[in-house]
């Protein structure tokens, strides 16, 4: 399948007077899947999203969404995207059904299509039971779900969510992440968050922004392959000889840690290490009780990437 270039940001800057919010935001996203847009509060996530959606214009640089320029072709972009702001609001006197129908007419959909999609999406997002109540009385979680439902009515190529789960309770959070997992099978889901766990659960691609600059844009696969240095962990039943010195003198070992009965070995050549390490241990006369190869956690990688830049 040919994968479409869905997002392309080229050297975006954004200043409000002297205050430069975005210095250099460049990244591109191809095809479907979930993009985690990670950054601390104030890093420039919301500003970037407002530029992607055409709500704000960049000071310089170009943005293309689904092939259209986000500034010049604002209306064309709006047909291809769905957008869920951090705190969604609606016309409070409308019910969920009425809002969905109204939004449908903005897209120029016919009545039958609107009706079908409304039923389907309100079910999907779990607010079908309250569809005939005025939105003014909804809880934050219900508004969030309605915001997602209405963003999908035009069957967008990409849905952009600004911190979709940070305001939700654990159950609501679980539901929304589950929904995102479903959506990313058929479209691009661009989700900003400051919480690493969310990314680890659903993202296929990660973009990290720090102080207005994109410091990393990579698929999760590449990230793990490039940044993850596996660690061999083992414990012993019986220790004989000076194992630590022996290991430190082995050429492919880069680091040895011993802490509370647990050995951690990092290596420059993992294949060799996996093949030879058990032998070294046995030759020393020690007896192994546990042995495992584990990956660096995403948190380790995140800290490493952010500290490097």
């Amino acid at each position: 399948m040919l994968s479409l270039r869905i997002l392309e940001c080229e050297r975006i800057t954004k200043s409000y007077g002297k205050n430069q919010v975005l210095q250099d935001v460049s990244f591109s996203i191809d095809g479907i899947g979930c993009v985690g847009f990670l950054g601390a509060n104030g890093a420039g996530k919301t500003t970037t999203i407002r530029i992607l959606t055409g709500l704000a214009a960049p000071t310089s640089g170009t943005v293309k969404v689904a092939g259209y320029d986000a500034v010049k072709d604002r209306n064309k972009v709006s047909r291809e995207i769905g957008y869920v702001p951090q705190i969604p609001s609606f016309y409070n006197y409308m019910t969920a059904t009425e809002w969905m129908h109204w939004v449908g007419t903005l897209y120029g959909l016919d009545k039958k299509t609107i009706h079908e999609r409304t039923e389907e999406l309100l079910h999907l997002c779990g607010i079908y039971e309250v569809k005939d109540r005025a939105v003014g009385g909804y809880s934050g979680g219900m508004k969030q779900r309605l915001a997602i439902a209405q963003a999908l009515i035009n069957q967008p190529k990409i849905i952009i969510l600004d911190e979709p789960v940070s305001a939700l309770d654990p159950m609501g959070r679980y539901d929304v992440l589950l929904l995102i997992e479903k959506l990313k099978q058929v479209m691009t889901v661009f989700m900003s968050t400051h919480i690493l766990d969310d990314i680890e659960r659903v993202a296929d691609h990660i973009v990290i922004i720090r102080q207005g600059t994109v410091v990393l844009s990579s698929t999760m696969e590449d990230l793990r392959a490039n940044h993850v240095e596996p660690v061999i962990e083992f414990t012993l039943d019986h220790q004989a000889g000076d194992l630590i010195t022996m290991l430190e003198n082995t050429p492919w070992v880069t680091e040895v840690n011993y802490n509370g009965g647990r050995y951690k070995v990092q290596s420059s050549d993992m294949q060799k290490a996996q093949a030879e390490l058990p032998q070294i241990i046995i030759q020393s006369g020690s007896i192994l009780s546990s042995y495992q190869v584990s990956a660096m956690t995403l948190e380790d990688i995140f800290l490493k990437v952010v500290n490097q830049s």
Partner: peptide, 10 residues
């Protein structure tokens, strides 16, 4: 905030 919901629509 409702304007930001409306202005991303066509």
């Amino acid at each position: 905030g409702v304007a930001s919901m409306v202005f991303v629509k066509p």
